[in-house]
Every structure is written in structure tokens, then in C-alpha cells.
Design a binder for these strands. Structure first.
Lengths: 313, 313
DNA sequence: TTGTATGCGTTATCAT
DNA sequence: ATGATAACGCATACAA
């Protein structure tokens, strides 16, 4: 591997001058520049990025923690993240967690070891208090309401929209509402908001029997349909976790030649458009973008982005 | 930042011994190990990954070039890639190209500058001959049939399955076949295979009027539907680019209260299951996995993976 | 305008 | 078993 010293030697100048030529900074005579450039071309030389990173104490890499990629939510997030990253010349490292705390910890340790300049948690299994302890080692951004915890965040303001959606459900006369959730509301801020909005609108907590957790895919939606169907008191409306999941739910009933309860989706995906049901656009693209901006700038502020109920009554 | 020399000084041992303790190699007395470990804990020390990378001449990062992320094809690819990467303790850097040759060149340059250990092109705008020139700077894997070009590759064997699909179409009596393609067959190996299979089955080249290029999203599928509809001689069957795209195509006709020509999809996505139309499973997950294995191992072989026609007549 | 010297933090070789 | 020292390759403050 030919390095900057080789170029220095061959050109008759010092490594410092070669460095100046490469980075176009400081004073360099035309003569020196010419000579050095010709040697660089001749030797087919390029600087080594790792050495550069070490010297600059900066990698231009940002780690992005995702539970999984199959989910539309995380795809949109990634799109927003990537567009902001590209804008500033940063690269994105994908870090799959599957919500495993061990893995999340490992990623935090990688941040500590300076493997990347900052870390974005699009979602997390670890408690935020634990995550925030690593803020001293580098910038960290999370994508949910951090509540009391002091940590930079970009997230969708879901509560108001959930209230709007549940009011719409209530006005249409539904009373036994099924709820599908990604994770239990004890560990998920999103689920917690859902429950809170439900309670505010219906003036009571949802029936635990009506809640299905760990719903993440089309298949899970299908299974949830099965579950709801075998209940003595079936729901008359189901609040699904995503549009994809909603179609899984619907499919179960179709396969049984039954008519499904009414339902709505989330994430504003293709299926709600295709099958014309209501949904919520959580504007995840914007959230991703904002998160990356925070990661790069190092600011420790909070960015809230409103979501949008899409009424397809 | 506390470094290995600080630990050496404080523990009374040398940096070399500290390094041995950290990496658990070579001989270290229990006494030294104890002492050094306690100092490490005390100082909250962790090694710097960048310095380590520089010294080892290895980053454990692999760059993955994707034209865009909205596409199911690339999502599946990424899943396969990630699972293989994780298995071997490698990280994945996402590099969006949008098929722009400038960007692809920039990624090749980054490989040359050792920003990552290897580069995977899930698809490419640059000619393979050009890409292959960079093989001297590091491992590169592409995900299409490289033909004559000497370059490691993992790809789906599409031709046979396309033939099977077109035979099925022909047997059902269709004769005016619409074809949607991602990119023109002059630049896309996939499109070229499609055309070749068509020609083999129907004993003639497809009518250029029946081909729509640059079809990548649901919206594009919709527009293609519009295009086909205004033709004097409309197709009686349309061979779509993906299941998502097929639904866009279908939706145009639904919106116009017209009945759509028969059609099939590709990529084995949710819509073909939902709406029960035929499709092709290109086994992209496996391709991604194989590509990453090649990237890591540095082998320069070619891995072919058969695709699968899913008949939903 | 250019060069010297030093730092960035780790690994690895080779004595001892 | 341990240490000194040389890579790894580049950037930069400061001197000249």
C-alpha cells in the first residue's frame, strides 16, 4: 500500500505538503502542487480513510438501530434517515437489534469505542435511562417520547391523533374495540399512548381480552383475527397496528367465509389505499430525517412531528 | 480520552501487556491480568475501534449499494445480507445510488480508500467491466449474472423461470402480452432475460409498444395501466414487475370502473397472496445471504440460486 | 511557502 | 512472562 510518505519522498516534498495538496488547505506553491499531483496520479495513490478517521477523531458514520427491517415503519424511517445523512455526507450503518437488550448494549459499546460518531435508536428494548448513560460517549438520538429522561429525540406526536381516531370510532357507534399492539404498553411508549387515548375517549381502560400484543407482521394479524373470532364477545371494531397487519386480520375472516369486524390500520401503507380503510400517517419519513439531523448536529433538543388521521369512512 | 498507554502507566505494565489482556492472547501472568483489569475498570477504559481497524487493516464493515429502499426487492436483499453479516460479526453500511454512476463510482473509491472491507452491488448502473477494475482494491460482489466479466456474483437464475411463466401465459391463450420493466433491456440484465425468455416462448420479439420501462413503484404501475388502456390494441395479459406494481396497474382499471386485463406479478409479495394472482419468487433473501458470504470470504466464485414460479391460475 | 515533530490509539514483532 | 519499538497512515501546530 503506497502511503503519504511514499508520495512525499518521490515528489521531494514533505508529507505535510502532500497532505495540504490532498485536502486543499493551507499554502502550497503551484509548482509543488503540480509535482505532487503528478506523483499521486502516477502512483495511483488515495488516502486511507481509516487513518484519516483516526487522526480527525471522526468517522462520518452513524449507527442506526432497528429491531427488524420487514416492517414498513422502519423502512420509512430509514428513508428519512438516509436522505438527511446523504445531504451531509454521512454514511449509515444498519444495526439490527430484534429488541434484544444484549445487542442494544453492544451497539452502545460500539459507540463508546468510537466505531461511529452517533447512534440513532429508531426503537429500543433497553430502558431510556440506561441508554442515556452512554450520552457521555457520543451523540444518541431516540425516536420516541423520552418523557422525563434527558436524551435527544425526534418522534411523532401520536396521542392527539389517536384521540381523534378513537373519537371517530366512538361516533360511529362502536363499543367493543380490539387493539393490536407491537409490544405491551409497559415497555412500549407507543402502546402506552394508544391505551391513554383510548381511556380518554371511552372513559375506561380497554378490556385486556381485547388487546393482542406482539403483533408485527401480516401473519400475526392473521392470528389475531383467529383469536378475536373465538372470543365469546367479539369486537365490533379493531384498531390495527399497521395496514399490512390489518390485511392479515381481514384475510382470516375471508378464508373462513366470514365477514370481518370493521377495522382501521396505521402507517398509511398501500393496503389502506387498495382496500380503502382508514389509517394514520405517522410521518415517519420526517421523523427519520429529523433524527439524523440531530445525530449529526449533536444538538440535545427534542423534535416533535404531528401525525395525521386519514378518514376513509 | 484515556488510552492504552494511560492504562499501561497506571498499572505499571507496558502497553503490549495491556493489549494482551484486552485481546486475551499471548502469555500474561494472573497478577498482571488482575492489576490491569482493575485499572481498566477504574478508568472506564475501552479500546478505540478506529485505531484498532487501522492497526489490523480491517474494519469489519461491508458496503452495500442499493438503488433505493422503497422496493421490496431490495428489502429482501438487505434481510439476507444482514443475516449473513451478523453471523460473522460484520456491520453493513447502506449506500444509496439511485442508479447514478457518479455515486457508484464514489462508493468504489471509498472501497479503494479502505472505508470498508468489501462492497456488494445489489444492482448497478455502471458497466460491470468498469466495476471489475476495482477488484484490485478489495472484494466486490454483484448480484446479477456477470456474463463474461470476471467478478464474484450471487444471483437468481431467472431465465428458466421466466420461460416457465411465459409458457403458462401462452398455454392460457394470451397473445398480446404487456411487459413492465425496471430499466430498459439494454442496461438491465434482468430485463434482457425477460425479453429473451419471451422471445424463446413466443418465437418473436415483444412489440415495443407493449413494453413500459422505468416502472418501479405502485404509482408507476398505475401509470402503466393508463398507458395500456389508451392503446388501440390493448394487451390481454400484463407481465408486471412486482406484486406491488401489479396492484397499481389493477387499481387504474378499478378507478375507471373497467375490468383489467389478466396479469401476474413478481417478488412473491403480500398483494399476490391477498388478491390471489400468480407471481415469481426470486428468492432474493438467499441471494443476499450468498452475496454477503462471498463478500466476507473474499472468494471469487459465482453462486446461482433458482427462482420459483408460483402458479395461482 | 515548506518542513519537523508529534499525536491519533492499537497491534505485532522481537528481544529479554 | 514482559517490554521496547516499530508499524498502521494521516493531520496539524509550530517553527523556519
Amino acid at each position: 500500500m503506497t502511503n503519504i510518505h511514499d508520495i512525499a519522498k518521490l515528489s521531494g516534498y514533505s508529507a505535510a505538503t502532500v497532505s495540504r495538496v490532498i485536502n486543499q488547505r493551507g499554502y502550497v506553491s503551484d509548482k509543488a502542487r503540480e509535482k505532487i499531483k503528478s506523483i499521486i496520479d502516477q502512483m495511483d495513490y488515495v488516502p486511507n480513510d481509516v487513518a484519516r478517521d483516526l487522526s480527525r477523531v471522526k468517522t462520518y458514520n452513524i449507527g442506526v438501530v432497528l429491531p427488524y427491517t420487514e416492517h414498513a415503519y422502519f423502512n420509512q424511517m430509514l428513508d428519512g434517515i438516509m436522505s438527511a445523512a446523504f445531504k451531509h455526507g454521512y454514511r449509515v450503518l444498519i444495526l439490527l437489534s430484534n429488541y434484544e437488550q444484549d445487542k442494544e448494549l453492544e451497539f452502545l459499546e460500539q459507540l463508546r469505542r468510537r466505531a461511529f460518531d452517533a447512534l440513532i435508536f429508531t426503537s429500543h428494548g433497553l430502558p431510556l435511562t440506561k441508554i442515556s448513560k452512554y450520552l457521555r460517549y457520543g451523540q444518541i438520538v431516540c425516536c420516541q417520547d423520552p418523557g422525563e429522561v434527558q436524551i435527544p429525540a425526534a418522534y411523532t406526536q401520536r396521542y392527539e391523533t389517536y384521540v381523534e381516531a378513537f373519537k371517530w370510532v366512538k361516533e360511529r357507534g362502536y363499543s367493543r374495540i380490539g387493539l393490536m399492539q407491537n409490544r405491551d404498553y409497559h415497555v412500549s411508549a407507543t402502546s402506552e399512548k394508544t391505551i391513554a387515548a383510548y381511556s380518554a375517549v371511552f372513559s375506561k381502560m380497554p378490556d385486556p381480552q381485547m388487546i393482542v400484543n406482539e403483533v408485527m407482521t401480516y401473519q400475526d394479524g392473521y392470528q389475531a383475527g383467529k383469536y378475536y373470532h373465538q372470543l365469546k364477545q367479539q369486537p365490533d371494531f379493531v384498531f390495527c397496528n399497521s395496514d399490512d397487519i390489518a390485511t392479515g386480520f381481514r384475510q382470516f375472516y375471508l378464508d373462513q367465509k366470514l365477514s370481518a369486524p370493521d377495522f382501521m390500520g396505521q402507517e398509511h401503507q398501500l393496503p389502506s389505499q387498495l382496500l380503502n380503510f382508514s389509517t394514520i400517517d405517522h410521518q415517519i419519513l420526517k421523523v427519520g430525517h429529523a433524527a439524523m439531523e440531530l445525530a449529526i448536529s449533536g444538538e440535545s433538543k427534542i423534535v416533535r412531528i404531528p401525525s395525521r388521521f386519514i378518514n376513509r369512512a
